[in-house]
């Protein structure tokens, strides 16, 4: 069993390396797939493992974009001048300034989002269930509106970052590997985290928070840490996206609540909440579905997407992994009392 797993992981890793070269036409698509996997995995940290369904995780994506961009610009130019001169002045970045700014910007974005998650979490984790979802959604929407009225960061026009210095096809592969690296790290981090006492504690919060309280678990502390960890990876992904997209603006690309903000939830529901592989499988299925409908059902793509959401939520709540666990519990090491199985069947 362990051997099979090693082979599986090795195969996936090998595919990760080969994919952008084997399918050069899909370079950006594959990068976006990794982005989906990252946001789905991190959404599942709070939504699936801890039972706090946030609709505001997109906030960290958008904030990550802005922080990364502002750090990389601010290291070289005055930010006010830079954003003010959109379309006017010419700002050049050397290779060192570009890559240095990218590295520091992306890392800074992750760290900044972590800190912000603790602050927002402190204010919103008193909310439960749907109230938490709506509360966090409000944070994301408000942030988008605030930023789009903040001239110093470019207002509604957003920010235009320097273009990748060098061959643009190489750039695509570069960004693919950045996303893939963050994606693999996120996966490994989640895999490790869920095996620790910390992971068990957040599961306890999901299953019965009052009981967890009564057992003396530091529920608020664990909730804040978990969200901060999730926000870190989303912030990194946002930062990379900023450089990949080159130009972004607040409402449609940074704080895109109705796009990526909802997609990440759908990915997790589709793949299976509260499982390690669910978000990954869900992200892949969802991305495929989305690209296929956007290409072949153009005009109806949002209808198809809505139908997918409705079908998932109504008929397929446990997702792919949940279905498999229910159907073949032995594969997952779950033991079922023979009596109860007969009752279920």
């Amino acid at each position: 069993m362990a051997k099979n797993k090693t082979i599986l992981y090795a195969a996936i890793l090998a595919f990760t390396f080969i994919a952008p070269f084997a399918f050069p036409a899909f370079g950006t698509q594959l990068a976006t797939l990794w982005l989906m996997i990252i946001v789905a995995l991190t959404w599942d940290m709070t939504g699936g493992q801890m039972g706090y369904n946030s609709l505001g995780n997109i906030f960290f994506y958008g904030t990550g974009m802005y922080v990364a961009a502002l750090i990389s610009i601010g290291m070289v130019y005055d930010i006010g001048d830079y954003t003010n001169a959109a379309g006017g002045g010419i700002y050049k970045f050397t290779d060192l300034q570009y890559f240095g700014g990218l590295a520091l910007g992306v890392l800074g974005a992750g760290l900044f989002c972590s800190v912000v998650a603790v602050v927002i979490g402190y204010l919103t984790f008193g909310l439960r269930g749907p109230y938490f979802a709506i509360g966090t959604l409000g944070v994301a929407i408000a942030a988008g509106e605030l930023v789009s009225n903040w001239d110093w960061v470019g207002g509604g026009q957003g920010i235009a970052l320097p273009v990748y210095p060098g061959d643009l096809d190489t750039g695509k592969i570069f960004f693919y590997f950045l996303f893939a690296a963050v994606g693999v790290s996120t996966f490994l981090f989640a895999k490790w985290l869920y095996g620790t006492r910390f992971g068990a504690a957040i599961n306890a919060i999901r299953d019965d928070e009052e009981k967890a309280d009564a057992m003396g678990i530091h529920t608020l502390r664990y909730k804040l840490y978990t969200w901060a960890m999730a926000a870190f990876f989303v912030g990194l992904a946002g930062g990379i996206s900023a450089f990949q997209l080159i130009h972004f603006e607040p409402l449609e690309s940074a704080y895109q609540t109705i796009n990526l903000g909802i997609f990440m939830v759908v990915c997790v529901l589709l793949g299976g909440k509260g499982t390690l592989w669910g978000p990954v499988i869900g992200a892949i299925l969802f991305h495929l579905f989305k690209e296929v409908t956007w290409n072949y059902l153009l005009g109806w793509q949002w209808v198809a997407l809505g139908a997918l959401i409705v079908v998932t939520v109504v008929y397929f709540q446990d997702g792919v992994m949940g279905y498999l666990m229910h159907r073949y519990p032995e594969l997952f090491g779950i033991k079922v009392d023979e009596k109860t199985r007969e009752e279920v069947a």
Partner: peptide
């Protein structure tokens, strides 16, 4: 799993919590 979750978290520092059982 129910038992393991019930380990006294009050006696744990955060790095203890990040260990496996």
């Amino acid at each position: 799993e129910n038992m393991l979750i019930s380990l006294p978290h009050r006696k744990m520092k955060i790095w203890d919590a990040l260990k496996t059982y």
